[in-house]
């Protein structure tokens, strides 16, 4: 059985997305949660890239590619903002956990 490139990366994207979802919920450290969100986001981008290739034409679909490039920049902007929020939480409370999770340590 031969799998095409886009089929392989579709499966990769789905698995990595769900790994990231598990990491996001299971880990307590805020920076690690932010990293998990980034991993989920790049998996979504990879799925989008596989969809762009689904017609097997010479040229892969440029519209999803352009949207992914836009999305990568938005993702890094959101990451920087989230890391600043995490630092502010640390400066105010001395912990890098969300308040709801602190009680259950």
């Amino acid at each position: 059985m031969t799998l095409s490139t886009e089929a392989i990366f579709t499966l990769t994207a789905v698995v990595v997305f769900c790994l990231g979802l598990y990491g996001l919920i299971a880990s307590a450290h805020l920076v690690r949660k932010i990293m998990a969100i980034n991993i989920m986001g790049s998996a979504v981008f990879l799925l989008f890239g596989s969809i762009a290739r689904r017609n097997m034409l010479e040229q892969s679909d440029p519209v999803p590619q352009a949207m992914v490039i836009t999305g990568i920049v938005v993702a890094v902007a959101a990451t920087a903002f989230a890391l600043t929020l995490a630092r502010r939480i640390h400066a105010e409370t001395g912990t890098t956990q969300l308040p709801e999770e602190r009680g259950s340590e």
Binding site: I25, A26, A28, H29, Q97, E105
Partner: peptide, 23 residues
């Protein structure tokens, strides 16, 4: 200082198992 260690996971084994199964 109550800083969260990097490896800390949310407590409650049931929560993690549920999350893993759900994922």
């Amino acid at each position: 200082t109550d800083s969260t260690p990097w490896a800390a996971v949310r407590s409650g084994r049931s929560l993690r198992v549920t999350t893993a199964v759900g994922a």
